[in-house]
Simulated scan of single mutants.
Amino acid sequence: MNLFSQTITDFWQSQFLNGDIIYSDKAFTVSINPDLSEERRVMMLETSDGQVMAVLTPELADKLDLYQQQDLSEFAFRQKLIEVGVTLHGADYLFYFSQAEKNILLRENLEGSLRQLTEQDETIFSEFESAASEQDLDDAYVELDPWAVFGSFEKSRLVSAASMYPWRNAQQIADLGVLTLIPFRGKGHARKVVRSICKYAYNQEYEPQYRCQLDNEASVMLAKAAGLTLFGKWETISPDS
C-alpha cells in the first residue's frame, strides 16, 4: 500500500513523466515535455525517498545540449542550468496526509472555537488582517474570498485563519495557506484550522496540499503537528531567469 493516495502520486508523475524520458538511473530522471508553460519550462522534484526528477521543454533541453548526454547526474544537470543562466526559485516543501493520517482526520471531531468563514465575516476578517504584519500576510496568502476559509477564535476574536483553493491544473488537489496572529501562536490554533480545512477538502473530494519554503521552520513544524507527512521538495524556474 502506498503511503500517499493515488491522486497525489498520479498528479506528480503526470508533471514529470508524461514527456519523453531522455535519461534515467536509480536516482535521477530527466524528461522532455513540449507542453510545459513558460513559467514552468523547467521543474525539479526530490521525493522524500531521495528520488530526483527533472522536466524541461525541448528548447531548453537543446540549449543545455542534453540529447547528446550519455551520463547525467543531478549535480551536472544543475551545473548546466547555471551555465546557460537559468536559476531555480527557492524550493518548496510539499506536505500531504498519508492514507493512515487521512483516516484519523476523517474520524476526528474538530468542532469548538473554530468554524468556516463566509462573506458575512468581512468585518471580522478585516480586523484580523489589520493586526497582522505585511510580511506575514504576504507569506501566508490567506484571503476571505477563496474556495474555503476556516478561522479559530478567542473570546469572539479571529486569531488564526486558513484559506484554500483548487491548485493550478490539478483537479483534485487544494492548496492552503495559514496565518496566526503573533500573540496567539503556540496555542494550537493553527493546527486546528489546518486540520479543519483539510477535512473539509476531503469531504469535497480534494486532496489538501501544504507548501512552505525550506527555511520556514515554524511552518514545517506546523505541518508535522497537523499530521501531514513530507512528500518532497519542488523547484521551478525563477521569474528572474
Rank of each mutant, 00 (worst) to 15 (best):
A91T: 15
D92Q: 13
D92R: 15
L94A: 05
F95P: 08
Y96A: 14
Y96I: 12
S98W: 02
S98L: 09
Q99A: 08
Q99K: 11
A100I: 11
N103P: 00
N103L: 12
I104R: 03
I104A: 06
L105D: 10
L106R: 07
L106C: 08
L106N: 12
L106P: 05
L110F: 04
E111N: 13
E111C: 03
E111V: 09
G112H: 07
S113R: 04
R115F: 01
R115I: 02
R115G: 06
R115V: 01
Q116R: 14
Q116M: 12
Q116S: 13
L117F: 06
T118R: 03
T118H: 07
T118I: 02
E119D: 14
E119S: 13
E119K: 06
Q120W: 01
E122L: 12
E122G: 01
I124W: 00
I124Y: 00
I124H: 07
F125E: 00
F128I: 05
F128R: 04
F128S: 03
E129T: 14
S130D: 12
S130Y: 06
S130F: 01
S130R: 13
S130P: 00
A131G: 03
A131N: 13
A131P: 00
A132L: 02
S133L: 05
E134W: 00
E134C: 02
Q135G: 09
D136A: 15
D136R: 08
D139E: 12
A140I: 04
A140D: 03
Y141T: 05
V142H: 04
V142A: 02
E143H: 13
L144K: 10
D145G: 01
P146G: 11
W147E: 14
W147M: 13
W147D: 11
A148K: 11
A148D: 10
V149E: 07
V149C: 15
V149D: 03
V149A: 14
F150S: 07
G151V: 02
G151P: 03
G151E: 03
S152A: 15
S152Y: 04
S152R: 10
F153P: 06
F153T: 07
E154H: 12
E154L: 07
S156Y: 04
S156R: 15
S156K: 14
R157N: 13
R157C: 04
L158F: 09
L158I: 08
L158P: 09
L158S: 11
V159H: 04
V159C: 10
V159Q: 09
S160V: 05
A161M: 04
A161C: 09
A161I: 04
A161K: 02
A162P: 06
S163G: 13
Y165S: 15
P166Q: 15
P166A: 14
